[in-house]
Simulated scan of single mutants.
Amino acid sequence: MPSSQEEPSANPPQALFGAALALLARRDYSCLELRRKLVGRFPDADFNALFEYLQIRNYQSDRRFAEVFVRARVQRGQGPLRIRRELQQRGIMGELASSALEQVEVDWFEFAQEQLQRKYPAPISAMPLDQRAKECARRQRYLAYRGFPADVISWALNAQ
């Protein structure tokens, strides 16, 4: 039985393709994520050829990965800044990230207000005067952590 450090197949390109396909069968990965997962087992592999082969057959697509990723993060209640940052960490940058964010067709202002309402159902105006500033700051931090821009946060707080 081969150890985890030994090559499982006598044909390294076929083994690389098999390993990549096994990962992609579970979920979509960006090229960068896939490379990070496979480089430990296949340090000398030709990843550019692998990605070209996978993309020609539509097994791997950074565009599809970005679209699925953005939709999943929106369902979690995350804002555009956090989603974009997480896409960049996964190797999706520039126009591809912008395109994926635009395709979800979310009104970020309304969405931030919904997230705020879900977390804090009581309006700030219903609180005692001495607690309002502290509560407003807490809500700002909450939305900022979730990845909403300052203008969206301001609008959502004023609308509540």
Results as ranks from 00 to 15, higher is better:
Glu95Thr: 14
Ala133Tyr: 01
Arg73Pro: 04
Ile124Trp: 02
Glu105Leu: 08
Phe148Ser: 00
Ala10Val: 15
Arg64Ser: 05
Ala20His: 11
Gly147Trp: 15
Gly77Trp: 08
Gln75Ser: 14
Arg132Lys: 01
Gln113Ser: 05
Ala144Asn: 05
Tyr53Arg: 08
Ala126His: 07
Ala66Tyr: 05
Leu116Arg: 06
Arg138Tyr: 03
Arg85Asn: 09
Ala137Lys: 03
Leu24Cys: 03
Ala25Pro: 02
Val106Ser: 13
Arg141Cys: 00
Phe47Ile: 02
Gln5Cys: 10
Ala126Tyr: 06
Phe111Gly: 02
Arg138Cys: 01
Ser30Val: 04
Leu16Lys: 02
Phe17Val: 11
Ala25His: 13
Leu87Ala: 09
Gly147Ile: 04
Glu110Ser: 14
Gln55Glu: 15
Ser3Leu: 09
Gln75Ala: 13
Val106His: 12
Trp108Ser: 00
Arg35Ile: 06
Leu157Met: 05
Glu67Trp: 04
Asp44Asn: 09
Arg36Gly: 14
Gln117Arg: 11
Leu38Ser: 12
Asp151Val: 10
Ser3Ala: 07
Arg73Val: 00
Phe109His: 13
Leu157Asn: 01
Arg64Met: 07
Glu52Tyr: 14
Gln140Glu: 03
Leu24Tyr: 09
Val152Asp: 04
Glu52Arg: 13
Ile124Met: 10
Gln115Tyr: 06
Met93Asn: 12
Arg90Thr: 05
Arg41Glu: 12
Trp155Gln: 08
Arg63Asn: 00
Ala126Val: 00
Leu81Arg: 10
Ala156Gly: 06
Ala137Ser: 01
Arg85Pro: 06
Pro121Ala: 11
Glu114Leu: 13
Pro2Ile: 03
Gln75Met: 12
Gln89Phe: 10
Ser3Arg: 07
Ala49Leu: 15
Leu32Pro: 00
Tyr59Asp: 09
Gln78Tyr: 15
Asn11Thr: 15
Phe65His: 04
Ser125Tyr: 01
Ala66Arg: 00
Pro13His: 15
Pro2His: 08
Tyr142Phe: 10
Ala150Lys: 07
Pro43Lys: 02
Pro128Met: 00
Val39Asp: 14
Pro121Val: 10
Ala112Met: 10
Arg118Trp: 15
Ile124Leu: 08
Ile56Glu: 12
Glu102Gly: 07
Asp62Trp: 03
Gly94Asn: 14
Glu6Leu: 06
Ser99Asp: 12
Asp151Trp: 11
